[in-house]
């Protein structure tokens, strides 16, 4: 028997690599990146259809007041998720910052020291989280769970279970005041989100975080200071949580030990809705903001159409799963 050789068509596959990737892949990638904005607009339209009163000034400014604290935390959470992490301690940082704020005399003169103390709490928590995750290689879930619990205990120890004292009037204005019909806390969000988005999307540091988050080994071999970038993400996240704690404390007026309860999970959900992958390296600050807005909108719609308030949380659960399913890799 002789060798059976194929007739000469051997170069077909060799030339195929010239062809560019299909347009469909490109389109899907775009949808993944901008899908949340479609979602956002859809929710706005839905809300407007269900209740014409939705677009009233008072409802809108009320909505924004509610969105802002979550959006601030979600920005920080997004940063941590970007580097393959998670921060469960944000709610604890929020409450601790708010409790700290009431531990002063309650006059406006104390606002600066309050802010400094809050930020210091944030920095310390973030450093501890970052240290555990980066240097001790602890899983982010556990590390931040542990700091959350420790911080909770310290807070209770400090307040003996019942915080007393007042938020300075200025913080209350920041948290709940409106200027015309523009909520004052929106200014805080802008002051936080714009620089953050600029750094993340327009500078080399942001690019390094993006690359390190998606592929830590790649980042390391590119000579990036991946440890510092990761710890930095945790620190910024905790600082933002502290700021959000002050804003939310000012909004709620009454500060208890549970200011920000539920924000740890809500902020994760907002970031994931906004297009951040828990596997890191993907997402935009704009997406995190839109994700936060969608989450609050969902609750608002429930009220608008007169369903019992319990449906808010049911709808929230469904939105989480549905949106995540939309992003899942095929």
């Amino acid at each position: 028997m002789t060798v059976k050789a194929a007739s000469g068509q051997g170069f077909a596959a060799g030339t195929l690599n010239r062809s560019s990737p299909p347009l469909r892949d490109h389109a899907l990638a775009l949808l993944g990146r901008y899908g949340i904005y479609l979602f956002f607009v859809g929710f706005l339209l839905l809300a407007g259809l269900l209740a014409p009163s939705f677009f009233s000034r008072s409802n809108l400014s009320n909505l924004i007041l509610q969105i802002v604290p979550l959006a601030i935390v979600a920005c920080g959470q997004a940063l941590v998720i970007l580097v393959r992490g998670l921060d469960l301690s944000v709610s604890s940082v929020m409450a601790t910052a708010a409790v700290a704020a009431t531990s002063f005399s309650g006059h406006d003169a104390d606002v600066l020291p309050i802010v400094l103390v809050a930020l210091a709490i944030g920095v310390m928590t973030g450093l501890l989280n970052g240290f555990l995750v980066v240097r001790r290689n602890v899983s982010p879930f556990l590390a931040t769970l542990a700091t959350m619990i420790v911080l909770q205990g310290l807070r209770f120890g400090w307040t003996h279970g019942a915080p007393s004292g007042l938020m300075p009037p200025l913080l209350r204005v920041i948290g709940s005041g409106t200027w015309g019909f523009v909520p004052v806390n929106l200014l805080v969000l802008v002051a936080v989100a714009v620089p953050l988005a600029t750094v993340l999307h327009k500078t080399t540091v942001g690019r390094r975080i993006m690359i390190t988050g998606g592929n830590p080994l790649t980042g390391r071999l590119l000579g990036y200071r991946t440890d510092a970038l990761t710890i930095g993400a945790y620190v910024v996240c905790s600082m933002l949580a502290a700021v959000a704690g002050l804003v939310l404390g000012g909004y709620a007026q009454i500060v208890d030990n549970w200011v920000g309860k539920g924000f740890e999970l809500d902020s994760i959900v907002a970031a994931v809705l906004g297009g951040f992958a828990l596997s890191g390296g993907r997402g935009t600050i704009g997406g995190a903001l839109a994700g936060s807005a969608v989450l609050v909108l969902a609750s608002n719609i429930v009220l608008l159409i007169g369903l019992p308030i319990q449906f808010q949380i049911i709808l929230k659960g469904l939105v989480i799963v549905f949106a995540a399913a939309c992003y899942a890799k095929r």
Binding site: T204, I211, T218, G281
Partner: peptide, 20 residues
Amino acid sequence: SEGLAMLQDVGANISAATLH
């Protein structure tokens, strides 16, 4: 896992070592 930033585009991958 060690070379490319899989989620980034061609431009970002090429410039990654020479961002300055």
